[in-house]
Design a protein around this nucleic acid. Structure first.
Length: 164
DNA sequence: GCCAACGTTGGC
DNA sequence: GCCAACGTTGGC
């Protein structure tokens, strides 16, 4: 029996790699490399599947918020940057035989017609338990409930059916 | 730029 | 295996 599509939120600092950068990238896709947190690693390695949808969140932005929607186009594989001594994400404790860090590939699906700021997210009672609005939540790859995902799309002026 | 919250490291 | 010290995240 086919598994239902899952929903996620991924954080990126727009000064480093914004949603616009993803749109402009070759094929509008990129390797989500450089994540060095075990929980996020596990999510990318084990849980994210091709076709899952992602809220693309701008952290450390003015204001922070959800900028667009992306889609998982390649499932977890060893993050190449951990093997590159010249890369800032190089991890000398990792090896190709036993890689420590994993990444996925994502592709831009659609920019939200209206940017959804964290202030707006926090102001929506339906999103009270959403991970990203919780105090002290730093996880850069986090699950999103289907109802939360739909609600954020609605706030952003679109819908799941409009995306497909 | 501040600093609270959190995750990781390493001495013991 | 505890936990203090340290580094990072990320909203404000």
């Amino acid at each position: 029996m086919p598994k239902r599509r899952s929903f996620w939120l991924m954080k990126s600092e727009p000064d480093v790699f914004s949603y616009g950068d993803l749109v402009s990238a070759k094929g509008s896709r990129t390797h989500w490399d450089g994540v060095r947190n075990y929980q996020a690693r596990n999510t990318m390695r084990d849980d994210m599947k091709v076709g899952d949808l992602v809220l693309y969140y701008h952290s450390n932005a003015k204001p922070p918020g959800v900028a667009g929607v992306a889609e998982v186009v390649a499932e977890g594989y060893p993050d190449p940057s951990q093997f590159d001594p010249g890369d800032s994400h190089f991890d000398p404790k990792s090896s190709r035989e036993d890689p420590r860090w994993f990444c996925v590939d994502i592709r831009a699906v659609a920019e939200l017609p209206e940017y959804v700021s964290i202030e707006a997210l926090k102001g929506n009672p339906k999103l009270g338990t959403m991970a990203v609005v919780q105090r002290g939540q730093r996880l850069s790859v986090q699950p999103v409930a289907a109802a939360e995902f739909r609600e954020v799309l609605k706030m952003g002026g679109t819908s799941l059916s409009a995306l497909s």
